[in-house]
Design a protein around this nucleic acid. Structure first.
Length: 476
RNA sequence: CGGGGUGUAGCGUAGUUUGGUAGCGCGCAGCGUUAGGGACGCUGAGGUCGCAGGUUCAAAUCCUGUCGCCCCGACCA
């Protein structure tokens, strides 16, 4: 009975995935809707996840020589206008400031939708010599895009992210950095978030406005839809020419820099929810869980129980550990921390204390493991590692089980219609085929993976000679 | 921006068809009993029914407008 009640607390994942997602976001207290439409309040449970993501990513960035900066929130219209493709890509969704201090501004200011233009402007003034290169800057900030429909984490009008912007002397250096950052993101997703990703290159149709090439990591959500989880762009010297970023090379000749940019946003929290979550709520990988272990005392008013629980908490101070001594019932606490995704729970009661034991309960499997108190630190450590690993394996098995191949168009359309997931299929390289596929099926090209396979020698759409294998799918 | 749905206490809702001045559950506060999967009893606080007009002796209920939110599409991280 109690179990039934728990299950009805949120919509079943397989019944209505979208509603399930919304329920989790609210019930796990990640987000509240705000008074401004399309903007979300990120509550402590949600923000703590972001802080952990930030900490992990930031550390990895800095290990590669990246430095953090902060750019202005506003971009003058004239500055935004300089790179043609870039403006066209973003113009429809920027917010404009037209008044300040009660007076109309001479020039409108755009609220940054991304900061390429600001970084370019900066680089144009601080880069003079090849000795100044590379410049490896990153900023953590929020950006605003005037979205028509919004969903918490997945698409909001304002969202948090980091945007790295680098300037290099040569095309090769820029390309190397672009790939390096893509690999960094992919390692981060797989090792820290336990989300398997496909690495690859975007088609011209899908690439970033103003980029020469865009690389992406694509993850598959539990409902079979794809989520672009991080991108890395090689700008070549296009922006440098538009913003006049020149330096003097070793031969005393003027040359344009080659640039990259790369970003990951709070959207990734949506991926964590949609990859790992289940009908009992959020499931967080231990590596980013704000609370990794929650201690729930049983019969806590009995003498010695709370003291023992506090002792355990003390012993586990190497982990992010919490202890709940509120007067809620144990059953209530079990459900509550499951909803919030805490990876591991420790139950400790009079019977355990007498036996010198406690119970570990895994969030991912529900398994309850009695452990000897003498061995607590090791048991917790091993179990957390095992959860981290198993979450990844489970997600990868799910993705692989929902990855299909199609040799001809009938097969392709049939899969898109009936089997949510990735479809691997050959492509001739012609944008017309890409467009036709999208129009016919709503599936888009997710990426041209680095790991290529030859499924056939013909384009799945037009039947002409195939150039590349592409991952296709419906996307968020 | 199109199509559908919805808005009553922090959350979930009844009442709307047939107008008569708002009820229930959860949660919240206090006291006590409980405690290994969302405990129980008693007491109590909390609502100008999304907002603005209109009809009426009287509006949560009828009419007009407007806004928010959710879902599905198109567009994007």
């Amino acid at each position: 009975m109690a179990k039934d009640k728990l299950v009805t607390a949120i919509t079943s994942r397989d019944e209505d995935f979208a509603q399930w997602y919304t329920d989790i976001v609210k019930k796990a207290e990640l987000v509240n809707y705000s008074k401004v439409k399309g903007c979300m309040v990120i509550r402590p449970n949600g923000y703590a996840i972001w802080e952990n993501i930030q900490r992990e990513l930031d550390k990895r960035f800095k290990e590669t020589g990246v430095e953090n900066v902060y750019m202005p929130l506003f971009i003058p219209e004239s500055l935004l206008q300089k790179e043609k493709d870039h403006v066209e890509g973003f113009a429809p969704e920027v917010a404009w400031v037209t008044h300040g201090g009660g007076e109309k501004l001479q020039e409108r200011l755009c609220v940054r939708p991304t900061s390429e233009t600001l970084f370019c402007d900066l680089y144009s003034t601080i880069v003079q010599s090849y000795r100044d290169l590379p410049k490896l800057y990153n900023q953590w900030c929020s950006v605003v895009r005037w979205e028509k429909t919004t969903r918490p984490f997945l698409r909001s009008m304002e969202f948090l992210w980091q945007e790295g912007h680098t300037a290099h002397a040569t095309e090769e250096d820029a390309e190397e950095r672009t790939i390096q950052m893509l690999n960094l993101y992919s390692d981060f997703c797989e090792q820290v978030l336990a989300i398997p990703v496909i690495k690859g290159k975007k088609t011209n149709k899908e690439k970033f406005a103003g980029a020469n090439s865009t690389y992406t990591i694509e993850a598959l959500m539990h409902d079979g839809k794809a989520l672009q989880s991080g991108t890395s762009h090689n700008f070549g010297d296009g922006f440098a020419k538009a913003y006049d970023i020149q330096y003097t090379d070793k031969e005393n000749k003027l040359a344009y820099v080659h640039q990259t940019s790369w970003g990951m946003s709070t959207r990734i929290i949506g991926a964590i929810i949609m990859v790992h979550g289940d009908d009992n709520g959020l499931v967080l990988p231990p590596a980013i869980a704000p609370t990794q272990v929650i201690i729930v005392p049983i019969a806590q008013k009995k003498p010695g129980v709370i003291e023992k629980a506090q002792e355990l908490k003390q012993r586990l101070s190497d982990f992010r550990v919490g202890l709940d001594i509120s007067d809620k019932t144990p059953g209530w606490k079990f459900s509550e921390y499951e909803m919030k995704g805490v990876p591991l729970r420790i139950e400790i009661g009079p019977k355990d204390i007498e036996a010198g034991m406690c119970v570990l309960a895994r969030r991912d499997t529900g398994e309850k493991i009695p452990v000897n108190l003498d061995d607590l630190e090791n048991s917790v450590s091993e179990t957390l590692e095992s959860i981290q690993k198993d979450l990844y394996t489970k997600a990868k098995e799910h993705r692989d089980a929902h990855t299909y191949t199609a040799k001809d168009y009938d097969e392709f359309c049939n899969i898109v219609k009936n089997k949510p997931g990735f479809i691997k299929a050959m492509w001739c390289g012609d944008e017309a085929c890409e467009t036709k596929i999208k129009e016919d099926t709503t599936a888009t090209s997710r990426c041209m993976p680095f790991e290529q396979e030859e499924i056939s020698d013909k384009c799945v759409c037009c039947g002409k000679k195939a150039k590349t294998m592409v991952y296709w799918g419906k996307a968020y």
